[in-house]
Design a protein around this nucleic acid. Sequence first.
DNA 1: GTGCGATGTATCGGTCCGATACATCGCGGC
DNA 2: GCCGCGATGTATCGGACCGATACATCGCAC
Lengths: 212, 212
Amino acid sequence: MLELAILGLLQEAPMHGYELRKELAAKLGAIRAAISYGSLYPTLRRLQASGWITEAAEATTTAEEVPALTSRRGRVVYKITAEGKERFAQLIAQTGPETYDDTGFGVHFAFFARTDQATRLRILEGRRRKIEERREGLRDVLGRAAERLDAYTLELQRHGLDACEREVRWLEELIANERSGRAPTVPETGTAGGRREDNSPPPPGESRTERP
Amino acid sequence: MLELAILGLLQEAPMHGYELRKELAAKLGAIRAAISYGSLYPTLRRLQASGWITEAAEATTTAEEVPALTSRRGRVVYKITAEGKERFAQLIAQTGPETYDDTGFGVHFAFFARTDQATRLRILEGRRRKIEERREGLRDVLGRAAERLDAYTLELQRHGLDACEREVRWLEELIANERSGRAPTVPETGTAGGRREDNSPPPPGESRTERP
DNA sequence: GTGCGATGTATCGGTCCGATACATCGCGGC
DNA sequence: GCCGCGATGTATCGGACCGATACATCGCAC
């Protein structure tokens, strides 16, 4: 998952570790906290070893004129390679069971703008199926095993069930929208005043600036 | 976290691994999928080594009369010890940062019936604080960085924000209820004579919207 | 000029997951 | 009778990811 996320972000711009972490937090803030360096750096190393990213060390203008007694550890900027882009395309289109858990789905969804429509639909439906199963499980417990559980546990299940139902509805909307060939339209989320209504959909194929 | 959950479940009744996993799934179904055996068995081993649980091997009536050519691997029933109960009491009352993340909060909440009111309040408020912070982060991104992100990413954030707002409201309700409610204190069931009877825990959110 | 918070790279131990293996049990179908 | 098959049941292994920690630089306020 981390691998996919990093490759996706580096596709937008070269970055160093710290930056990557922040961008990741901004992009995935809805589904998980900031990623740990204990995962980030080893993964970067692995990606580099696989040839999917390269190190583009900071252009310390007029570089080694400064002897640097303490071997200055400059920040390391990473950049995706052509192979890396291929790898990303492969990972983003390939779905497995892990694609539908909370984190996996979140990461895939965050890069939907770079995903073809058929895959988007497949992922949304897979996610919906999974959440529906969770929902059924919770209904079962609340129905059949209710008297075995205390009030707090029951309340937890109820809250979870509510979240499931809500997510299914959200997914239904997205799926319908996807089928009709449009990007997500903004449903009335109670809050939020004037959000720009013209969220011009990212046309299935992305139209981002290629290679800055 | 797993340790706490296992100790809590075994406090209700002795169980073997498989059963433990199912009960865990039923009790925590709202927050996480079934726990993996790759975590469960090593943890059971650790708990046993620490003296918090003991192995109460199946009461194979008239035991070793059967030679058992293939050394029959019976199921292993675990039972909490007095030290284990102490350990549980300590873990359930002690709060750290991990108490407020999704899993940690879920596990603590699931055992609220065995938690004193002051701790319950502390945990609920800590969780609320954490979710409020997440909410602010999402609002920031949606407000300040909106044009940097594509429509899908924004939609993800909106959905996350919605979930945060909803959870905060849920927590507010629980907190209000806690402050005005009476303390339940559930004694041990199963083991030893349960002296005090009928403690109907507080109705956490009895005023929910209708549910089938 | 000094402390201090943000930026920045890196490692280590530990928790938990997913895949896999293997054995027993009850039951329906042939 | 017996055969397969799904549920029950215990167990291990490699890998992903986290949290704590360490250490270094930079800009800026006091």
